[in-house]
Each structure stands twice: as structure tokens, then as C-alpha cells.
Design a protein around this nucleic acid. Structure first.
Lengths: 346, 346
DNA sequence: CTGTTAGCGCCTTCAA
DNA sequence: TTGAAGGCGCTAACAG
């Protein structure tokens, strides 16, 4: 018994019609072209029995379309945080009957060129250019065809739409969490700030979060008491920064610029016998898995990875369908995860 | 200026040769078929100038091969731990000039069928069937063509090769770490054990790790003092299990069945004022990122995700090339990450 | 050594 | 309402 795929010709023969007719029926244009109901059923039945499936490669060659999009990232696929971004993209793609190619550039322009070529060679219908952490990227010039930037903004003006988390609003939300809990003083930032220039290099998240924080606090007439910057948002550095802060100050609330930093802060706080949230409230950003693993569970403003991924393919499809507004920036809301690290002050 | 892709015909015309000749040159068979050096150079130059790239879709249709493999997982792509698996596969694929389709089944057989179809429709050259955590899976029967199981073993005998971490050896290694540090008693397991039947359902890792642990300890004439099982390896459950253990016992060493469990154990130990590793040594498995974030840094036997991914495509290619031994199981070594959670006993 | 010819499987005018 | 024919871009026999 032959394992060869059944082709349209096989199907046509089995149904006793021409290939054209079979094709028409299979592409759902039987009604439109007024093919007899009888013939239509015959074809459909034969297709079912033979297990006919159109060869996507052939269709691709013929139509120039592949129902495939490429997901190219610096290293997002491997980022433990951002697998959800792919998951979101994957699901949105599946809903549209589209497959996903993935590739990583490792930040190497040479690799990036190669990948983009390999994808174009395979006639991808569109491209998602993703970054592991939110930042500005240099848009490769050989992006032929529809593309969107995911978790990234173009370094130089570009027509490509961007999908990014709404970090400014997240900053506002974090500040509001503290305000709502009655905090008015003794608020310090860890990881960046308190001034806008004290941010890790390249990090748009840092400045935008800070902007939001300062805005809401400012409106409420509350001053940030101080802060410590970390060149990288790692637990060790968060620990060091917090330990250093504690040498001179007794904070009542910490806004950590992300969860890994917060983990370090927890450790430093613990070392000097300060209780979270009894003595010090902590808010953070990202909603990394550890946020709900550490004790007390961390109240944090979540990075909406899954939604970002979904949105990317939605925008990409809009892009592919009509002409979209060039360079539009889509901001995805960052939800607050209320947990146990913030105490109410009277 | 036309943006149309340069075709072989264009190239042939520009070089003043036939399409065949151009094709021969471009596929590197000029030497073999003794095409004049002069013509070869002319074609190569023209190709370079025109930026000719063969249309992979067309090649696919013609040759039936697509230089593409499919990576299908239950939900590994999104698993924060296992992004490295994809990364490994991605790199090994890139080295071979192959692209990766990815898809997730969410454990839904219906989705799985659909995905497999979609991939076959696109003529993938091979399939990687991956699981998020090591376990036995039901091999779908419509896997036409070469395929390998990644981080999974077939539930019923199958011809497909498997690539899995060498958990038994990992268990041995963990036990040796303790033995080498002079531990001879007061050793408890957390997450599973001490008996082989006390394991979370479905988890092959649990039983294999336990087997290795018991083997080495047994050989050294050391008895496991006791243990606590967790139905799922989560920090909370690790905490609860350890706290419960501490009500009755004073362990000198803990073998946690994975890092998340170990995190919970740390918390429980801390609560009763026990110091790691001063009072209690801790070894664990997985090398989750938190292992190096918590204090003291956790000594753990690493899950070789990256290597697993690489190996999967290596085996897949071997599979595609020659006939491989059916059903072979490839075990990838799990390296010990020596850190600070184990103290030497005199 | 190089060119001609014939498809791979499908879709799409154009005729019948 | 259906069929025949051509071609997407490429490779592989087979001639010359």
C-alpha cells in the first residue's frame, strides 16, 4: 500500500470530476461558482475517504503565500520569562491557521540576515521581530514584507508597528498600590531612580516605570525618599543595593524595579531583621514565577507576555490585510498582581 | 524598480546560460559535472550581483524536501525552564541550514493531530515530539516520516528514538555529593521517597532519581533516614513537606527532588532556625535559575535542556540519513553544579 | 560540457 | 456547470 500523499488529481479521479472542479470544491468556492450539489458532495466524500489534504508547498508556489509567519528574536525563545510571548503568538497564529517559524539572532546581525533570508526563501507571509527585554532595536533593512516589532521600539523612525508593554502605566499602578495602602513617606526605589537618569543602560522599562511612579507620587504630593540603581537587575545586585540603602535609611516601602531585584531586597531586609510587609512594604514589576514562590508573596505589576505575543500576530495580520497606520505603537496593559508584600498604613 | 524575487531564469539569462547550467552551478555540482570554470564564475558573479536566492518553496515542491523540521511539544515552548531545549534544537538546526516550526498541543490530541497535519502539509523533513517534563507519552500514530521523542519515552513500544536526561545517574551523582562531603546519616529525601513507590504520579524523573540515590547510598552502606513525598514539586509543597518532617526529625542533609521543592525546604529550615549548610546540607535537581539566586546558592544536578535540544536534532538527522536502531534511548548526562548548600562533615 | 524537456501539485484564466 | 491548458520556480533525465 502506497504511502504517497493523495493529490488533487487522485481526488478528482476518485470523484470522477476534473481537477478544476475538485479544486473549486475544496477551496469552498463551489457555491459561488454554482457547481452541482451532487458533484460537490461526491468530491467532499472522496476527499474524506482518501484523506486528501492540499499540499501547502504547492499552494505556496502557486499563490506565493504560505500561511506561515516568522518569529525572530534576539534570544527570547530561550528567555525563561518570555516563553509566554511565543505561546501567545502561537495561539493567535493557530486560530488563523498559520504556522510559526522561530529563529534566534543572538544579537548577531549576520545571523539575523541569514535567518531573515531563510524565512523569505520559504515565503513567510509576515515577520515578528521580537526582543527579550523591552528595548529599542535597529530594524534590519531587508525586512521585505509585513512585519511588526514585539517588545521593542525602532531605534530610528520606522514604518513598522510596535507592540510593547505599557510600562508608564505600570509605574503609575505600582505607585498607586502604595498610595492606596496609605504610604506617604519612606518610599525608596531599588534597581533605578529615584532620578530619571539613574537607570540601567538601554532599559526603556526602567525609565518608563520611573516616569509613571514619579508622576503618580508627584500628583499626590508624595516625594520619593531615595533610591539605588542597579546596573543589571539581578538578585545579587538588588541585595547589594538594598543592603547599602539600609546602612543609612529605614525605608517603609520599596518599589523594586523588577522581581529579581525584589528577591535580593527581601534577602537584605531579612538580614537586618526587617519584616515584609510588617516593617517594609514591597512592590515590584514583572510577575516572574518567583514572585509567588517567595514569602511573603510579592505584589507585582505583571509583564503581559502572553498578551504581547497574541497582539503581535493580531497587528501583523491587520498589517497584512489593509494598510495600517505606519509606525503605530500598541501598548499592552500590565495588570497588578495583588499579593502579600504590601501592608496598609494607617 | 521591481521588487520581484530574482528567479533562476533571470539568473540564467543574466549569465547567458541555460537554467540547467545555472542550477547546477548554484547547487554546487559544477565541478562534479565538469562545467567550464569560466561559465561557473559567470553564473556565480551574476548570482551575487542579482542577489539570487533559490526559492525554497519551489525546491520543496520539486524535491519533496523542505529543510524544515517541526518541534511539537505539549507546552514546552512556554515552560520557563525549557526554553533552552528549543534553543539547543534551534542551534543544531541552524548548523544544518534547517528551520524550525514550533507548535504546542496543550496535551489535546485533537490539536496534536491538527499540528502534525499542518506540518506534514508543509512537508517537514522530520519531527521532534517534546514533553515539558520527562514522562512517557502516547506516540501519535500519524507520525509519517522520521521523528524523535524529546524528554519523553514512548508509552507503548515504538520505533522512535528517545532523548532523555540521565536521571538515574543524576540520582547517583546527588548521593555521591553527600557521601563525598562525609554525610553518613540523617539523610532525608523531600519531594519523593524514601521508598520507590512514594513518587508523584507520572514522574519518571522521581523514580529514576530515587533509584540512583538509593543505589549509591546502598552501596556505601548508608541508609536513607526518611523522606516526604510531594504530589507536585512546588515550593509550597516542599515547604509543607519539610516543615512536617522537622516536627519529628532533625535531618543533617536533605536531598530535594527538585529546586522548587528545595526552595520550600529552605524556607521551612529557616523558620525553625536551621542553617544551610551549617546545620543541614541540601542537594537538589534541575538547576532552575532560582538555584543560584537563593542563599546559600544551591548545589544541584542540572537538567541539560540545551543539550537535550541539540541531541534531538542530531538524532533526528541520523534517523533521516541512515536507518537508526529503532527505539534507541539516548541518555544525556546531568552535570552537578557545585555551589554552597553542602557542608563537609568530619 | 551545456541545453531541452518534463514534471512536482496546485490554482486560474479561458473555452466548451 | 465543467474541462483543458498553462505556469509558479526549480531539478533531473536525457540528449546533443
Amino acid at each position: 500500500m502506497s504511502r504517497r500523499r493523495v493529490t488533487l488529481a487522485d481526488l478528482a479521479q476518485a470523484a470522477g470530476v476534473s481537477r478544476t472542479t475538485a479544486s473549486l470544491v475544496m477551496t469552498g468556492r463551489a457555491r459561488e461558482l454554482r457547481i452541482s450539489h451532487d458533484v460537490e458532495q461526491r468530491v467532499l466524500r472522496a476527499a474524506d475517504e482518501l484523506g486528501y489534504r492540499p499540499n501547502a508547498v504547492s499552494v505556496g508556489l502557486r499563490t506565493g503565500t504560505s500561511r506561515t509567519i516568522g518569529f525572530v528574536s534576539d534570544t527570547v525563545a530561550t528567555s525563561r520569562l518570555a516563553g509566554d510571548m511565543i505561546k501567545g503568538a502561537l495561539e493567535a497564529a493557530r486560530e488563523r491557521g498559520v504556522m510559526l517559524f522561530i529563529g534566534e539572532t543572538e544579537g548577531d546581525p549576520e545571523l539575523e540576515r541569514g535567518l531573515l533570508h531563510a524565512m523569505h526563501d520559504r515565503q513567510v507571509d509576515g515577520l515578528i521581530l521580537a526582543a527579550m527585554y523591552t528595548r529599542t532595536i535597529k530594524v534590519p533593512k531587508d525586512v521585505g514584507g509585513p512585519a511588526v516589532l514585539l517588545n521593542a521600539l525602532p531605534k530610528t523612525p520606522s514604518d513598522l508597528p510596535s507592540i510593547v508593554p505599557d510600562e508608564v502605566e505600570a509605574g503609575r499602578a505600582a505607585a498607586r498600590v502604595l498610595l492606596d495602602a496609605g504610604h506617604r513617606d519612606g518610599i525608596y526605589t531599588i534597581g533605578a531612580g529615584p532620578a530619571l537618569r539613574n537607570v540601567p543602560p538601554q532599559s526603556v522599562a526602567a525609565v518608563e516605570r520611573l516616569v509613571g511612579i514619579r508622576e503618580v507620587l508627584g500628583e499626590a504630593g508624595v516625594k520619593i525618599a531615595g533610591g539605588r540603581m542597579c546596573v543589571d537587575w539581578l538578585p545579587e545586585l538588588g541585595f547589594a543595593a538594598t543592603a547599602d540603602l539600609l546602612k543609612k535609611h529605614r525605608p517603609k516601602a520599596l518599589i523594586c524595579l523588577n522581581d529579581r531585584v525584589a528577591l535580593g531586597a527581601y534577602q537584605a531586609l531579612g538580614d537586618v531583621g526587617l519584616d515584609v510587609p510588617g516593617d517594609v512594604s514591597v512592590v515590584s514589576f514583572d510577575d516572574h514565577p518567583i514572585a509567588s514562590w517567595i514569602r511573603p508573596k510579592l505584589t507585582t505589576v505583571a509583564l503581559p507576555y502572553y498578551e504581547l505575543g497574541r497582539k503581535a500576530v493580531e497587528v501583523l495580520f491587520a498589517q497584512m490585510g489593509e494598510e495600517a497606520k505606519p509606525g503605530e505603537v500598541h501598548r499592552v496593559a500590565m495588570p497588578v498582581m495583588h499579593r502579600d508584600s504590601v501592608a496598609t498604613r494607617s
